[in-house]
Structures are given as C-alpha cells and as structure tokens.
C-alpha cells in the first residue's frame, strides 16, 4: 500500500468516525432501536466505488472498532459488527454486479441486509421471538436509509478526486 493511499484511507476512516459520532449525538427520530440513517455507510459506498473492496472493508472495520472503543459498549460492538460485515458481504458483490454505477441500489441492499443482520443478532441475544415483530420496520427503514446514503455517496463521489495508483 502506497503512502498516498494509506493516508487517503486514514482520512476516510476519520471522516466515517466523525460522521458516526455526529449522527449518534443527534436524538433518534423514531423511538425504535436500530432505526437510523447510517450516514457512515456513505464512506463505505464511496470507497467501494473508487477503491477496492479490500480497502473499503479495512476502513469499515477500523471505523466500527474505533467507534466501539470511543463511544460504545461491548453489546453495541456486536450489533455494529454483525450489521457491518453482513451488509458489506451483500454490497460488495452487488456493487460489482451493478458495475459501480448505481450506489443507491447497492446502498439500499446494504441497508436492508444491515438491519436484518442486527435484528437476527437481537433475536440471538434476547432469545425472544417477539423482536421479530420489528421485521417490517427494520426492512423498510433499511431500504429507505440505504437509498438515501447511496444518493449521498453518488453526489459526493462527483466532487472527489478519483483515486489514482
């Protein structure tokens, strides 16, 4: 990894962490756990567009671990990791399938899978089938939030200098 790339990725990780911190400081709009915009995903989507999947995954993991270290508890790390890894596993191939052109579709798929993974984690943690009542809420909010973050990534990507080796 070149020094230039390392620095760029570090800046992206800082940006993701800052966005995450600001978003978690804003009180939630809906009094349901797990429903939020997930603005930090904008950074992951931009990296998937302009860098390689490996770089995007690196920044995602650094962001999740640092945010848990700085603001979170052990349990929120579990939810973040489950959501982050599963949504990445969905976004990476779908981004390739969509030829990196339609980040809002990739984002919607990512948001959906992120929320489904977190819901399943909640099911595993509480071992109560009752949390599955949230399924439609989580699915709908995941898709809508993913569309929004995807559009953010789409427009932000226009103003960024494309990565050169």
């Amino acid at each position: 990894m070149s020094l230039r790339k390392l620095t760029a990725l570090a800046v992206y990780a800082t940006l993701a962490l800052a966005v995450y911190a600001i978003e978690s400081a804003v009180p939630p709009l809906v009094p349901l756990p797990g429903i939020k915009l997930g603005l930090a995903n904008v950074v992951t989507l931009i990296l998937l567009q302009q860098y390689t999947a490996k770089d995007a995954f690196l920044v995602l993991t650094v962001r999740i671990l640092l945010s848990a270290l700085l603001f979170g508890q052990a349990l929120s790390l579990l939810y973040s990791l489950a959501g982050g890894i599963v949504s990445f596993a969905v976004m990476c191939p779908s981004n390739r399938l969509l030829r990196r052109k339609l980040p809002f579709l990739t984002g919607a798929l990512g948001g959906l899978s992120h929320n489904l993974a977190q819901l399943l984690t909640a099911y595993a943690v509480t071992s109560t089938a009752g949390v599955l009542v949230y399924l439609p809420y989580m699915a709908a909010s995941g898709i809508l939030a993913g569309l929004f973050t995807g559009l953010c990534a789409h427009f932000a990507g226009r103003y960024l200098i494309p990565h050169t080796k």
Partner: peptide, 15 residues
Amino acid sequence: ISALLGLILTASLAA
C-alpha cells in the same frame, strides 16, 4: 434488483 427492493418495501409498509 429494483423490483425485489420495491417488493420488500411495499410488503413491509403494508405490514
């Protein structure tokens, strides 16, 4: 992909 997402979204909102 769009149709799939639209379907899931509609089903969720209906639920």
